[in-house]
Amino acid sequence: MTTLLEPSVPGETYTLLRERMTIRGELDADSFLPWIRRHASKLGLFQDIVHSGPDRIEVDLAGAPELIDMMEVGCLLGPINVWVETIDRRRVSNAGG
């Protein structure tokens, strides 16, 4: 996993965040989960879906803060059959990641 997060320029350092994103709303997991996975991989984010249900999806993300912002902004819209009400983010420790 860490290989995904190494800076592309040697010697440069990132502030890497690991965050849990909690998405709430009227969520259709069948269409939203693949959408989330595709969007996170297009952003080069480490991703781990830790909970999924019709009204709540939780995904752990690690990467540069601006990229996690981009993930949140994209998920706020999501696919057309999904209505996202809120997205909460909180830092989680790297231990065990």
């Binding site: 959408w35 601006e66 981009m70 999501g78 696919p79």
Partner: peptide, 15 residues
């Protein structure tokens, strides 16, 4: 559906 785009925090108004 922004699946083909990459909106950033700067695009929050659009989103």
């Amino acid at each position: 559906d922004p699946g083909m785009e990459m909106p950033t925090r700067a695009d929050l108004t659009s989103v």
